[in-house]
């Protein structure tokens, strides 16, 4: 675990050593608020809740998270530093976990910095803070899922742009797995059980069920398994393809 912590610290410091961290946080905050007020109709709804705020998180994350994860492994391979890292006494899974947790902690920070909107809604009325808390947790879990997917896509290539595009596509497919856009690709040839299985993978469905304020174990478990699966895949990809 000490190696994980060391790598986490190094990664996090490297975010702030470049403009990346500041640009990411700024854009996230501006877009999250702009969507809430202009598209979500925060004032017009006349309700003291943060639904118009959380509703857009999946779509914001869809582009911002792959932008954050595209460099995780692709850059290490491009610059050759992966050869240094993988010949130090560090196991591949420790590096994968360290990098993932650093990115997750960083997104958590960006998410935490949206607190003014929580203060605003509490100033304007009496929202159900339990629902808001659950929604924040759901948003963080969703970000974790996207980060794990993005990390896996980054481990597959040494080209960051390719990693970004693969990341967006993979996140999009999993996000909408329960919707006709994805399910129609399976209808007609796949058995009903497979279609149901694909539909149950839908990130959006699980996210929405959490943001309604029902924090169910199966939703949390879903995200935990999703993250574990993609981090495992990342580890395998890093191990097999580190020298390519």
């Amino acid at each position: 675990m000490r190696n994980v912590a060391l790598i986490l610290r190094r990664e996090l410091a490297s975010y702030f050593a470049t403009p990346l961290a500041y640009v990411f946080i700024l854009i996230f905050l501006v877009l999250a608020n702009a969507f809430t007020f202009y598209v979500g109709g925060f004032y017009q709804s006349g309700q003291a809740d943060l639904r118009p705020f959380f509703m857009f998180h999946p779509w914001l994350y869809l582009f911002l998270i792959p932008a954050l994860t595209m460099k995780l492994w692709a850059e290490e391979r491009k610059s050759g530093s992966i050869e240094l890292l993988m010949t130090l006494p560090v196991r591949a899974y420790e590096a994968v976990l360290g990098k993932f947790l650093a990115a997750w902690l960083f997104t958590a920070l960006a998410l935490a910095l949206t607190f003014p909107i929580w203060i605003t809604v509490n100033y304007l009325g009496h929202p159900d803070n339990g629902v808001i808390f659950a929604s924040y947790l759901g948003s963080l879990l969703l970000a974790g899922g996207f980060l794990a997917i993005g990390s896996c896509m980054s481990a597959l290539t040494r080209n960051q742009v390719v990693a970004f595009i693969l990341g967006v596509v993979a996140c999009f497919v999993l996000l909408l797995a329960g919707y006709p856009m994805v399910l129609d690709a399976f209808r007609g040839w796949a058995p009903e059980t497979l279609i149901e299985a694909v539909a149950s993978l839908s990130l959006l469905t699980h996210f929405q069920s959490i943001t309604r304020g029902v924090l169910e174990a199966r939703d949390v478990l879903y995200f935990a398994m999703l993250i574990a699966f993609f981090l495992f895949t990342t580890t395998v990809a890093v191990d097999l393809r580190k020298a390519d």
Partner: peptide, 9 residues
Amino acid sequence: PEGAPSYGE
């Protein structure tokens, strides 16, 4: 390693 790679930033 060849080229002495490290973390540039």
